[in-house]
């Protein structure tokens, strides 16, 4: 069930009876074979996951792709990044998820676990207080404007524009840093007053644009 990149905006996924795929609703471009689609509500396992998704607003309309065949996925001409998870977990906004293997575990969690600071971060960046964590062995496809590039971190810190941040893997600490000065208050700031400071060991995926996925 590898996710094969057809071009920068489209992926091809082989679906089998053992390997269903969850994808964003409306992301199917076409398919061959005996494949059916089924809308599903929310993410996460069981009732807790459903309730959590409903409460946090961190749920997207997803669908399950089942059967056997080959399916093309893409969404509104956005760029697609394919990642393979090998036991580690990926933290991502739900609306950036294009598709992932159905057997991966997804859960909703509070941003950062950092109390008020992270709450402020979520509110300010428009990312909300919750993100989705995906773990296990399998494939994930992410949406971005203009493609993503990975930044490897080995104990150092990198500053990322909150709008350009897409996802991260590994043991990373994400903090909001504001350098709001007088100029920002009077509306003459650089527009870069708020940054995410990411530190630790892992990889941050950053998109080449400051546009959010709608």
């Amino acid at each position: 069930m590898t996710f094969e990149q057809v071009n920068s905006k489209v992926i091809r996924v082989a679906v089998s009876p053992q390997g269903a795929v969850l994808a964003r609703r409306g992301a199917m471009l076409g398919y061959s074979g005996q494949v059916t689609f089924r809308p599903i509500a929310g993410q996460g396992q069981g009732v807790g996951g459903m309730v959590g998704a409903a409460m946090s607003g961190e749920s997207n309309k997803m669908m399950a792709t089942e059967g056997s065949g080959s399916v093309l996925y893409g969404y509104r001409g956005l760029y697609v990044t394919v990642l393979q998870l090998t036991g580690d977990s990926l933290v991502v906004e739900a609306d950036r998820l294009l598709a992932h293997d159905a057997h991966l575990q997804t859960s909703i969690e509070m941003v950062g676990q950092g109390g008020v600071r992270s709450a402020v971060r979520g509110a300010v960046t428009g990312q909300g207080l919750f993100t989705t964590r995906i773990g296990g062995q399998g494939w994930v496809a992410l949406l971005s404007h203009g493609g993503t590039f990975p930044i490897q971190l080995a104990g150092d810190t990198v500053g990322v524009d909150p709008q350009a941040y897409v996802a991260h893997t590994g043991a990373l600490q994400v903090d909001l840093k504001s350098s709001v000065g007088v100029r920002d208050l009077v509306g003459r700031g650089s527009g870069e007053a708020l940054q995410l400071h990411v530190s630790g060991h892992g990889t941050v995926h950053v998109q080449a644009s400051e546009e959010k996925v709608k």
Partner: peptide
């Protein structure tokens, strides 16, 4: 994005 060519049977 680039055009993708596929052959029937296809939906």
């Amino acid at each position: 994005g680039p055009v993708i060519f596929v052959e029937p049977p296809f939906r």
